[in-house]
Every structure is written in C-alpha cells, then in structure tokens.
C-alpha cells in the first residue's frame, strides 16, 4: 500500500504515435492488435488532440461493482483492478459502467483491461516523450501543480 503508483498522462506531450498501444498489445497478446490493446490514443486531427485513454485503477471501481459474476477484483497490494478471465461471462457490464472507456472488448467479446504490466507498465516505459509516466502517488500532486502553474511562473518571470 505504501508504494502505490499511478499512470500519469500529460496530453500536451503526447505526439499521438500510438507506440503505447503497440507495446501493450505485443506484450499481452504477442501480436500487434490495435483493437485489443488496453490503452488507446484517442485522436482528433482537426484540433491536434491526442489523448491516451487507459484504466485508472479506481479505488472504488465501478466495473467491479457492476460485475455480476464477481470476475473483477482489486489487488490491495499493487492497487490494480483485475479481471479473472475464467469467471468472466462476457456480459460487458464493466465496459458500460466505466466512465472513461478503461475496458477493451475484443472481437471474441472478451473483456480486457490494463494490469499495469505487473508493476512496470510498458506504455510508460516506451513512451518517446514521457507523456505517460508511472509515478508514486506520494509525488504526483506537487508535480502536477508545478506543471499547472508553469505558465503563471513564466508570466511572473520566476
């Protein structure tokens, strides 16, 4: 519990290259399968937006609450929310309940989600611009605030 870390995403740094998707599916599925990847970069080309979307490993996971077959559980030690494929009945309730699209439905209607690669997420590891970082929760707040006030600091000439 003491060393809980989260995936922190900085959309301004994301170039939209989708290498995170590639390494995610390659490692989990052994193939490049963009429709099965547990992270997706949602793009809007007219505005230049590139937003990696991935499970946030909620403390109160809605996916877990709605799962009728109790296939989803939280690992209190690592903080990851996991799907037990042997119990999953493929109802896709988790997919519908998740407010951010953290669950992937495959062609075979299997539910898949980020498992933080067992503690060393490859998406963060391979991100060319560090738009995705895996950081301890004890450090992210100040870091985020620092980024937030960056503009103000520049304006004030600090």
């Amino acid at each position: 519990m003491t060393n809980k870390s989260i995936l922190v995403i900085d959309v301004e740094k994301c170039t939209g290259c989708r290498l995170c998707e590639t390494v995610c599916s390659l490692d989990h599925e052994g193939v490049v399968a963009p429709k099965e990847t547990r992270i997706s970069v949602i793009k809007k080309e007219e505005t230049g937006a590139d937003i990696p979307v991935v499970c946030q490993q909620c403390e109160r996971p809605l996916c877990m609450e709605v799962c009728p077959s109790l296939a989803i559980s939280r690992d209190e030690r690592t903080g990851t929310v996991n799907i037990d494929e042997s119990r999953c009945i493929g109802c896709s309730m988790c997919f519908m309940a998740c407010p951010i699209g953290g669950i992937t439905i495959t062609k075979e209607k299997k539910m898949k989600k980020c498992d933080l690669c067992g503690g060393k997420p490859l998406c963060a590891d391979h991100c060319p611009t560090k738009a995705i970082e895996f950081l301890p929760v004890t450090k992210v707040t100040e870091q985020k605030r620092r980024k937030g006030i960056r503009k103000m600091l520049t304006l004030l000439n600090y």
């Binding site: 301004e12 170039t15 939209g16 290259c17 590639t22 230049g48 060319p128 611009t129």
Partner: peptide, 17 residues
C-alpha cells in the same frame, strides 16, 4: 508550433501541430 506530432510508432516526432 503548439506541440510535437508523430506518425505511427515513431519516436522521431518530426511533425508539429
């Protein structure tokens, strides 16, 4: 330029928005 952009799987990100 607002930010760097890249093509598929590219670490070079030579493009910009």
């Amino acid at each position: 330029a607002k930010k760097a952009k890249a093509c598929y799987n590219c670490m070079v990100h030579c493009s910009h928005f």
